[in-house]
Design a protein around this nucleic acid. Structure first.
Lengths: 352, 352
DNA sequence: GCGATTTCTGCAATCGATTGCATTGGAGGC
DNA sequence: GCCTCCAATGCAATCGATTGCAGAAATCGC
């Protein structure tokens, strides 16, 4: 513990536009016009120079609050995620923030914990701060977030999860296509009995991946009806372990498991190990997301790489476009994922 | 692509305090006092009830901008991280945001990319938004961030990295203690020749861990001077691989490597594998941070678990305390880490 | 029951920038 | 040389809440 004291500088009260006006010998409104790139054309070049000189000789900085109060735009965007610690969100938030910062926006981030009440509270708080738009990476079925945004007049875009029938733009991964990739890969390796470790109900990614799984089996000439499917109660390791154990206990034979999510795979690895099955030898496993470091687990996980950064970037772009042109039609962007093949998938063991 | 259009509600212009005043039959100032918990004592209970009833019948929401303009406090805190994708930062930011949200603060997050110019820009932008305080998780030596904050009159706390001599509170891990834990562990296993894969120069964690390493060797009766030390040029996998390769090429014998960071270990694993050495058999390796999933890599990494969440929480608490009492002495909090033993460390191979 | 306090509420200024409208000055037309 | 017109600038209201001060009402003391 140090007891150094903070060195308080002279605390010169921040220069305002009026101070700049005085120094430059013009009216405050002229200063405002000169300093705002959008209106600086209304001012003589000479005056503009005088004003900018005065401004930075005084070290003037705009007050986003004052400007926002008047213009009703805060140049602030909010991002809501369920839990920033979930590794799929940082790249999204990061990419969004970078794009927004480049456009002069500040980014508010908050965690909803998947709690609708908390979500509501946070959206209202962001409304209080007059965010110009919201990015919702948390949308689960039954949430009223979008209605709330509409009521508050806040433009919003969905990320990662869609809400069926929602009147908002969304940027998501093409999950059905992604699942198609893994199923095709497994089929090509020779697998015919493929199980699905599905995601929790009520989440669009889980639904899309589950239906995509069925469709892909059918496309490969396999019977979706006979494929064992077990839903996990959450996208979490322990839930994956339980669901995998349930699949094994189900008795239906399979040589490969398509999981809806990498996190589930980690649990599945545990359950399979407990059952004496070697992943990548006795049984193949695929994930979804290509989380950081799933290339370093043992065996390396075959999975579907989602363009998380692009997701954040595109969503931010869409949101800014919507702010600029509120009446433009909504967009539903699906990003194309990529199959990443590692050691967790191999041809099924030959019957002995 | 959908072409649904946004359903614009009646767009009732948001109720202001004046509307509430009119409905409640009192003056706006009374409304302000009634609605603000800090001043609601100045108002008759009956009036307070009337006002709150009017307020939520009109659906009134405060305008943080208007209030902030007047009070010069925005109830907003900024957090600067080098790169949110680096897995140590999400838990910090998450925990800080959660605490701040509970106190009614909104949290601005931005990535500096370790670029001082960008850092300066972001701090100035946050000043523009009148943040009440800043949490800097990005401090590297030579940054002028703290000076800038002082000049702008923004309270700031450092997280994760300290700046020697800085007049700001800091919440960091006790790195010297943490390194002591791993060295003691290795010594107890029988290691006598221990190398250090150090972090990049100019970063407090790298310095502290390096000096802690030397001190711990000495404490164990070993000679720090003869221990091979190689600094990586960054906390990154590839940098770890290079540095490990350099250590091996150095020719000095060792049976264990203490790395300054888990990320370096991933690279070290690669370099060791390339050299035909089996981690946890031929050579022991320890990390630092206990990143997510280093328990699932092969072999599981013995490492030092840092209380990242506590770091964010404590730093947020310190910052709020400083905002409340700007003249209180600064704090330098060191959180105590924990040794996590996994399969990457084992007794040194017996000479054959 | 009257003056002295203590509450409570109203008034009006204020925070800092923006913007519709009015004014000024100068250029250009004839 | 005078009038018109346009560009540049000034004026003043405005965004929504807060707060020092003043006035009104209620309470208290004696």
């Amino acid at each position: 513990m140090s007891n150094r004291r903070h060195l308080r500088p002279a605390e010169a009260p921040r220069a305002t536009i009026a101070d700049v006006a005085r120094l430059a010998g013009v009216h405050a409104s002229t200063v405002s016009r000169a300093l705002n790139p959008a209106t600086s054309g209304m001012v003589t070049r000479a005056v503009a120079l005088r004003v900018t000189a005065a401004a930075d000789s005084l070290g003037w900085r705009p007050s986003a609050l004052a400007a926002g109060l008047r213009t009703r735009r805060s140049r602030t965007i909010g991002i809501l995620v369920p839990d920033l610690v979930n590794p799929i969100f940082p790249p999204i938030v990061r990419a969004a923030e970078t794009l927004l910062a480049a456009q002069g926006y500040a980014t508010l981030v908050a965690n909803t914990d998947n709690d609708p009440a908390r979500e509501t509270l946070l959206i209202e708080r962001m409304a209080t701060h007059l965010v110009d738009g919201l990015m919702l990476a948390s949308a689960a079925e039954g949430t009223s977030a979008l209605e709330l945004c509409a009521r508050l007049g806040i433009p919003a875009v969905l990320i990662n999860r869609r809400l069926p029938g929602a009147a908002a733009s969304a940027v998501t991964n093409d999950d059905r296509y992604g699942i198609g990739l893994v199923v095709a890969h497994l089929v090509k390796l020779g697998h015919r009995r493929i199980a699905h470790l599905a995601g929790p109900p009520g989440v669009s990614t889980a639904n899309d991946r589950r239906s995509g799984f069925r469709a892909a089996l059918k496309a490969a000439g396999l019977d979706p009806a006979s494929a064992p499917i077990q839903a996990a109660r959450a996208y979490a390791i322990e839930a994956g372990r339980e669901a995998m154990a349930a699949l094994l206990a189900g008795g239906a034979p399979f040589t490969a498991v398509v999981a809806a999510n990498d996190m589930l795979c980690l649990g599945a690895y545990d359950a399979l190990a407990a059952a004496g099955l070697r992943v990548g030898v006795d049984i193949s496993v695929t994930g979804f997301n290509d989380m950081p470091f799933v290339d370093r687990i043992h065996p390396g996980l075959t999975t579907v790489r989602i363009q998380h950064a692009a997701m954040g970037r595109e969503a931010a772009g869409l949101l800014l476009a919507e702010i600029a042109a509120p009446d433009a039609p909504r967009q539903d962007l699906r990003l194309v994922p990529e199959l990443i093949i590692r050691a967790s998938t191999r041809a099924p063991p030959t019957k002995s």
